[in-house]
Amino acid sequence: MCTGILYRNGAFSYFGRNLDLQYQLANNVTVCPRNFVLNYHHLPPMKEHSAIVGMAITGYGYPLFFDGVNEYGVAAASLNFPGYGQYSTTLEEGKKNITSFEIIPYLLCTCKNLDEVKAELSQINLVADDFNEQIKSVPLHWIVADHDGSIVFEQTPTGLHVYDNPLNTLANAPDFPAQTVNFANYMNLSAEYPVNRIAPKLNVPVYSSGMGTDGLPGGLDSMSRFVRAAFMNNNSHAEETDEATLTQFFHILQTVQQIDGANKEKDGFYEITNYTSGFNLDTMDFYWTTYNNQQIQALHTKALDLDQSDLIVFPSQARQGVSWIH
């Protein structure tokens, strides 16, 4: 399971996600430069395109992106969508037939803003091809953002649906409309200092701050994480600087991280937050933490040679970084 957000703080916008799984993936910080040839199952190869940076599996010579941002500030992340996502089993004439593992690089290599993403999605048929014998197609849905806002798209038995996302938040199942309806159940929550509404004529003691959040879901299930992340994201307050925005972005996603031992799956393994990724949509700088290293690591992507034709791959630091003062 996973959680993704777009955090907007004045002039600054950060996008990213927690990737939650019960096992570690061979994911690496991956730059797909402008001249890396992207091969598609049902489309011609893309030889020139926008540069991308994100987390990906790269051991097969092709960047299997979980999330990423391009040099124009368009970002995307895929989240597990079990029981709801369903891809097409046939190619559709007149549509661009694209697989689930190709959709992030396709959109980020093609689009310069969210309007262009919507236009592309109107022409796309998501097909159910596996990547290879080892990597099978799994049900996913996606959150996509630029500096000004975000959308969600998901393909179900009734077709490919695109939703505006004013909450700038996404978790897993159920579908996005159901998540937003459930969010309305918590509209009485507040970040404000508590007010006595239960018996206004009486002197009811305020024994604690934060009483307006009483009832905020604390579970690790996707419905609870959606509400909690959306509440934190939309009530967040930070100084309008890049550093403060970055710090607050990671704090928001920390409220929905999975802790080893707290969520046992039916296979007997415990789900954990493998990593948290963060993209500055203005600079293309990429930040991340991993479960075993909570120190923020960073890549100044635009300092690299983005015109080359080979993937640029950086293994993420697995051991905890500690800053000693003495």
Rank of each mutant, 00 (worst) to 15 (best):
L253A: 10
T273E: 09
S277C: 07
G261D: 08
F286R: 00
F249G: 01
L299T: 02
N274A: 13
V256F: 11
I272V: 14
N293P: 06
Q295T: 12
V256N: 10
G278N: 02
D282H: 10
L253H: 05
E271F: 13
A262Q: 11
N280Y: 03
D260W: 13
T289Q: 09
N293S: 12
Y291E: 14
T247V: 13
K264A: 06
N263T: 09
L246V: 11
I296E: 10
N292D: 09
F249T: 11
K266W: 00
N280P: 00
D260K: 15
F286Q: 02
Q258I: 02
L246F: 12
T276L: 01
F250H: 07
E243T: 11
T276K: 00
G261T: 08
G278Y: 01
L246D: 02
L281K: 01
D267Y: 00
D267R: 02
K264P: 01
T247K: 15
I272F: 13
Q294A: 13
D267C: 03
F249M: 10
Q248T: 14
N274G: 11
D285K: 11
D282R: 04
L299N: 06
I252Y: 02
A244D: 12
T247C: 14
F279L: 03
T255L: 08
N293V: 12
Q258V: 09
K266D: 00
Y275H: 14
G268D: 02
T245M: 13
Y270M: 14
Y287Q: 02
F286W: 03
Y270R: 10
H251P: 00
N292T: 15
F279V: 05
E265P: 00
L253V: 11
L253W: 02
G268S: 08
E243C: 07
W288G: 00
N274K: 08
E243I: 14
D285A: 14
W288E: 01
T290Q: 07
G278H: 01
D285H: 12
D242I: 12
A298L: 06
A244T: 12
D285M: 07
F249A: 06
L281M: 05
L299R: 09
Y270H: 15
T247S: 15
T245V: 14
Y287F: 15
M284E: 08
L253P: 04
Q258L: 08
Q254H: 11
Q258S: 10
T283H: 02
Y275D: 06
M284R: 04
L246T: 05
N280T: 06
Q254C: 03
F249Q: 04
Y270P: 05
L253E: 04
D242F: 12
E271N: 14
Y291N: 15
A262Y: 05
T247H: 15
V256A: 12
E243L: 12
N274I: 14
H251R: 09
T276D: 03
T283C: 07
L253G: 09
L299S: 05
F249C: 07
A244C: 13
H251Y: 09
G268R: 07
Y287P: 01
D242W: 10
H251N: 06
N293E: 04
H300R: 12
I252K: 04
A298D: 03
Y287D: 03
I296G: 07
